[in-house]
Computed example of a mutant assay.
Amino acid sequence: MRDLASAWRSAARGAGATADDHAVDAEGSALLARWAEPHRHYHTLEHLATVLSIVDEEADRAEQPDLVRLAAWFHDAVYDPHTPGDGNERASAELAVVSLVSLGVPTPAIDAVRRLVLLTAGHAVQVGDADGALLCDADLAVLASHPAAYDAYAAAVRSEYEFVPDAEFRAGRAAILRRLLELPALYRDPDLAERWTEPARANLIRELGALDH
């Protein structure tokens, strides 16, 4: 796995953090600890690394790529499967504000990161929002995985919600899949959309069919 500590430091500095190296590294270590929590099965360091890799590969699409990177760091930083609705995203966004304020990141950059984190609750991106499009495309990349990898992802999500009765989980998961299928576009970048939309939709439809039976 890539050197995530260095990636964090680079993104924080790129966003304008003025705190000393010790403070920046301490915030990064705290985030890494969150992503490594034992109750996580999909929303893990591996997911974070994957999202960051895609953001790096597609960085020329972004207006402010370091802010997209920071939003990737925070987008699932708070992750409690017991939390209803978009509570995790809202808590993650507020954590981003507190953390970035402490590091001296300029207020406009903090506001942008907060907005981007909140976008990952529904992945509904407005036309012309290049930074939001990149973050959401990277976050949803797993949907276009090879069927076996997709099934492993779906199983990992189920493990995170092992406390939820099966019928209730099926209904909730099916509702999420339907919302994804109803998005105007799963992916915004034309090249990614061309490569990823068909396999992603096939995976979603296949899982939805399994949940409905």
Rank of each mutant, 00 (worst) to 15 (best):
E194T: 13
D21W: 14
R2F: 09
D21F: 10
D212K: 01
E168M: 01
L192Q: 15
L116M: 03
V125L: 08
V125Q: 04
S99V: 06
E58M: 06
V98Q: 04
V157F: 01
L177I: 11
A49N: 09
E27G: 14
V78A: 05
D129I: 10
R9F: 11
A149W: 09
G16R: 05
T44Y: 03
L134P: 14
G87W: 04
L143F: 02
A133R: 14
E58A: 10
V142W: 00
P65T: 02
A59T: 15
V78S: 10
G132N: 10
A5S: 15
A175T: 02
E89V: 09
F74S: 03
I205G: 01
P147F: 04
A15N: 15
A141R: 05
D151V: 06
D212R: 03
T197S: 07
W35I: 00
R61Y: 06
G87L: 07
R40Y: 01
D3S: 12
L140W: 11
G85C: 01
E198I: 12
I176A: 07
Y187S: 09
A93T: 01
A154M: 00
P65W: 00
P106N: 09
A130K: 10
A175P: 06
V117A: 02
H146E: 11
L116E: 12
T83G: 03
Y150K: 06
W8D: 03
V113W: 05
G104C: 05
G14Y: 11
W73C: 06
L204T: 15
A30K: 13
L134S: 04
